[in-house]
Design a binder for these strands. Structure first.
Length: 935
DNA sequence: GACATCACG
DNA sequence: GACGTACGTGATGTCC
């Protein structure tokens, strides 16, 4: 039937159905794997009831469910804050969205969406078309944004209240008829969608004004005639904003559609399809009810044992076969490779692992790739294995036969690895992604079992493959040492015989796939899906790009400094030997201790464990007030540290090809969510002393560029003020006050105007102490004051800020009750030692107090880093380094201001919209030719 | 490879 | 009443 007179088109607002279903029903998960499905069930039930309802004269002849698609629409181009105040979707709702589309299709109801348009615009367009064709329209929604469409054969229907809304219904709601609804909305604004409107004008006033003046244009043109001075001024001052608001609320009824009204004709569902879907979702009573309506038998849904029983229990891997190293395939020709690729493509996911000649992704060469498609079903693709060549000059270095040519293999793999519909699964995917990026392959989309484990089990154990396999699969993978050897006899992987390599490499892919099957459903159950999807996984490509970019380090600068340090050290060493009266190794704490405490007889104690004297900087500093020798040793140590760890070692890390230093960030290394930087560690480059800071002069920008540093000011104290809810501190941050001086003033009763540096320094130490889980002993040692005095400070601090003690007690209690603490963003940090006895209890307690603060700060900068590349896309700038609360960029000289503005906005807004901080985040920026100047 | 030391946030 | 303490990292050199 062609759409026309006598037809009635029903348009269901899909999002409204989903959100109603989600909020109306308690959380429900699918038994077999823990997938959240409550909203899907509610959605299906609402569709069932809607289709089953007798709509009388308004019975549908055509029906569609309309969804939003894409988060960016023309409204965002008009106004970048449009819907900016929306909370992120709840994490257990997100995976259900695609399922509601499948549900709609299972009901055989047309399911429509258009990229970049809101459902409301599509509804407006279809309503117009239907009206023009002479038919009638029922919009199934109670959203006021759709009320502008009512009238002239179009009504709305509130499915929850079973109530029809016509022109009079709209008038009831807005005080105007539908044709003036947008005018009211333009004036009143909308806090839900963040439409600004005119300040101080609500729906009532707007309707009043419009009824007086007739239309919005008229009203704005004649605003001067308004009697109330406040309203008059507002309308004149905010004219632009009001007109913008109108463009935001006005629906676009000319959305391009790739279907016609005729495509929406109502269809009966296919019982097998619909019941099959409901069975897959494991909706028992709903499928019984629907089967009854359809006059068929409901399928039996097996009672599967909850996966929770299997999850986490070592050895239990559902239906997976045991590990068998002899069962793995070796891919020797292109045809075989194509078969594996087809298999991966068919099922939509594949585990992946690369083998290379070394651990450094910047220099390592690809040797082979392994794939796994099911537990126990894995293959190794050797690409660059060479003869072992111990002594045999003729075979040495020759490529072994029967290997697929590297270029052919990569050309075959590239479409698979870049296919948006095939999920690639890896363990530490950043490594593989970097190797493959050098081969011109951009792996996406992917999952990473290491990061899944980090989100699930952070704090419980490490997240390396061997640990995870032993713990969760009860299987000890072949140690790499058994394949490549160790020490002098160690070889690179390309020298490993292909048979041995196959057993080892395919096993890694197999282990990865099995871990993924285990972890994937657990993410939802542990409610860490959002953590994983927003703060772990998307960081992988961001960090990979930063690491590949590297930072330019000037070898000559380092080399000159190194020489100067050598001379200084030699002089100091001579001086020290003279003072000691004998020569000894100044770098040996053991020998130094014997000189100081045995030969010279100074005061100082032994440390229990090894019986050696402690000669740390704090002890030497105490001794240095009386004696020359420890003072010179301190000088020597500082120089020695700078030379060995920085000026010398750093030069070794300059990449031959790029002339830059490429660090490697571990995403899952630190318990709190912080990153860690290795080989070299670029997060501990000196800055605190003048001498050390000069090392940073060697970190430079390319010609025509500068380094730009942006760092969060006092981020951890701000988070503390927020989580502990300390109003005085929060207000001080809002007012931009000196927080340490403010603390000192509050504690010691000193007016801010009379603050001395010494009092401020003490308050600063206390503030830091609080973040670390303060103890009288620790503060006493840090401030070098008697323990009783330190305890007095702490007591006074808690007296003044009782909320902080409450926060600490609550955090420790939470840790004891749950075995973990959480950051503001839901990252879980497990605290297995919290019930320990003895000194370990104290450590665990302090770590538990610190973790949510340090971890929330880490989450915030992670979020900023994930949002940074799209934000600065197109600018002549790249992000190079992260140092916990600082991001370092290399930027074209003329783009510094633009970069700073954009990056600052991203960083300061990084908590939004998941967490509304009660304190502002403040970012300080600097720029210069080198890191010392930028910081 | 454990330990002490010290660089950073 | 005694534990023995600031939180989180990584790299280096010594010594066993």
């Amino acid at each position: 039937m062609s759409f026309g007179k006598g037809c009635n088109l029903h348009l269901i607002d899909g999002s409204a159905f989903i959100f109603r279903a989600f909020h109306a029903l308690p959380p429900l998960t699918r038994k077999s794997d823990g997938l959240p499905v409550g909203a899907v069930q509610g959605f299906c039930d609402m569709l069932r009831r809607y289709v089953g309802t007798d709509h009388g004269d308004f019975a549908p002849t055509h029906l569609a469910v309309i969804f939003d698609k894409g988060s960016h629409t023309f409204r965002n181009d008009l106004y970048d804050l449009y819907k900016a105040n929306r909370d992120e979707m709840p994490e257990d709702l997100r995976p259900q969205i695609p399922l509601t589309r499948r549900a709609t299709e299972a009901f055989n109801i047309a399911c429509k969406e258009v990229e970049g348009f809101e459902a409301d615009d599509i509804i407006a367009t279809l309503a117009r078309q239907a009206r023009e064709a002479g038919g009638e329209v029922t919009i199934v929604s109670s959203d006021k944004d759709l009320m502008q469409l009512v009238g002239d054969g179009v009504v709305m229907f509130d499915a929850m209240k079973n109530r029809r809304i016509d022109r009079d219904g709209v008038f009831e709601k807005f005080g105007v008829y539908p044709e003036r609804v947008v005018d009211v909305q333009a004036l009143a604004g909308d806090s839900v969608d963040n439409v600004p409107g005119a300040p101080g004008i609500g729906v009532k006033t707007a309707a009043l004004l419009l009824n007086e003046f007739g239309s919005l244009d008229e009203l704005l043109d004649r605003a001067g005639e308004i009697k109330q001075p406040k309203r008059r001024e507002t309308l004149i001052a905010y004219r632009d904003q009001i007109e913008l608001s109108k463009r935001l609320v006005l629906l676009d009824d000319r959305t391009p559609l790739d279907f016609t009204l005729d495509d929406l004709e109502i269809r009966d569902p296919d019982p097998d399809t619909l019941l099959g879907f409901l069975a897959e979702m494991e909706f028992r009573s709903l499928s019984r009810r629907i089967a009854e309506t359809l006059g068929t038998e409901a399928p039996t849904i097996p009672e599967t044992a909850p996966a929770a029983a299997a999850a986490g229990a070592p050895g239990s891997t559902e239906d997976a076969p045991p590990f068998d190293g002899t069962a793995y395939a070796c891919i020797r020709d292109l045809a075989t490779l194509e078969r594996w690729i087809a298999e991966a493509r068919d099922q939509g996911f594949v585990a992946l692992d690369t083998e290379t000649t070394g651990l450094n992704e910047m220099t390592a060469e690809l040797v082979g790739v392994s794939l796994a498609t099911a537990p126990g079903r894995a293959a190794y693709l050797p690409l660059a294995h060479r003869a072992a060549g111990d002594g045999d000059l003729f075979d040495d270095g020759a490529l072994l036969p029967d290997q697929v040519a590297r270029e052919d293999a990569l050309a075959a793999l590239k479409p698979l690895l870049e296919d948006r519909s095939v999920l690639k699964i890896g363990q530490n995917m950043k490594y593989d992604a970097k190797i493959l990026a050098r081969c011109g392959i951009d792996v996406a989309p992917f999952d990473d079992t290491m990061l899944m484990s980090y989100a699930l089990h952070g704090g419980e154990h490490g997240h390396g493959m061997d640990t995870l396999s032993e713990r969760y699969l009860a299987h000890r993978p072949i140690p790499i040492k058994e394949v490549i050897g160790s020490g002098k006899t160690q070889v690179t992987f390309d020298r490993v015989p292909i048979d041995a390599a196959t057993t080892y490499a395919a096993e890694d892919a197999d282990v990865t796939l099995r871990l993924w099957r285990l972890f994937r459903p657990q993410l939802h159950r542990a409610q860490v899906t959002r953590v994983y999807e927003t703060m772990e996984r998307p960081l992988v490509p961001v960090l990979a790009d930063m690491e590949r970019a590297g930072i330019k380090v000037d070898r000559d600068t380092l080399s000159r400094m190194s020489n100067a340090f050598s001379q200084k050290m030699a002089a100091l060493e001579a001086e020290i030997h003279a003072l000691a009266g004998e020569t000894f190794n100044v770098g040996s704490p053991k020998q130094l201790g014997e000189i100081l405490f045995d030969r010279m007889g100074l005061d100082g104690g032994k440390k229990g464990k090894t019986g050696a004297y402690a000669t740390g900087a704090d002890i030497l500093e105490d001794l240095a007030t009386e004696h020359e020798l420890p003072a010179r040793v301190l000088d020597w140590r500082q120089i020695s540290k700078l030379k060995s760890t920085y000026t010398d070692a750093l030069q070794e890390h300059i990449n031959r090809e790029t002339g830059r230093v490429h660090t490697c960030y571990s995403i899952a290394g630190a318990n709190t969510g912080r990153l860690a930087s290795t080989e070299p560690n670029l997060q501990n480059i000196p800055v605190r002393t003048e001498e050390g800071r000069r090392i940073r002069e060697a970190f430079v920008a390319e010609p025509g560029r500068v380094l730009v540093s942006l760092d969060y000011s006092q981020i951890e104290l701000r988070i503390l003020a927020h989580v502990a809810g300390i109003e005085t501190l929060k207000q001080a941050f809002r007012d931009g006050q000196d927080i340490h001086a403010m603390t000192a003033s509050e504690m010691f009763g000193v007016p801010m105007a009379e603050m001395t540096p010494e009092i401020r320094r003490q308050a600063k130490a206390i503030n830091f102490g609080v973040i670390y889980g303060i103890s009288g002993f620790g503060l006493a040692r840090n401030l070098r004051i008697p323990r009783g005095d330190a305890q007095g400070f702490i007591d006074r601090y808690f007296e003044r800020f009782p909320g902080i003690r409450d926060y600490m007690d609550a955090t420790v209690a939470f840790a004891k009750a749950h075995g973990r603490v959480e950051t503001l963003f839901g990252r879980r940090i497990h605290t297995p030692e919290i019930d320990a006895k003895g000194p370990r209890a104290g450590f665990a307690r302090r770590a538990a107090i610190n973790a949510p603060i340090q971890g929330s700060a880490a989450d915030i900068i992670r979020r900023a880093m994930v949002r940074m590349p799209p934000a600065i896309d197109g600018m002549p700038a790249r992000m190079l380094l992260q140092v916990h609360d600082e991001l370092l960029f290399e930027v074209a000289e003329d783009a510094v201001d633009a970069l700073v503005a954009t990056a600052r906005e991203v960083m300061e807004g990084a908590a939004d919209p998941v967490v509304r901080l009660d304190v502002p985040l403040v970012v300080e920026a600097g720029a210069g030719p080198n890191w010392a100047a930028a910081h």
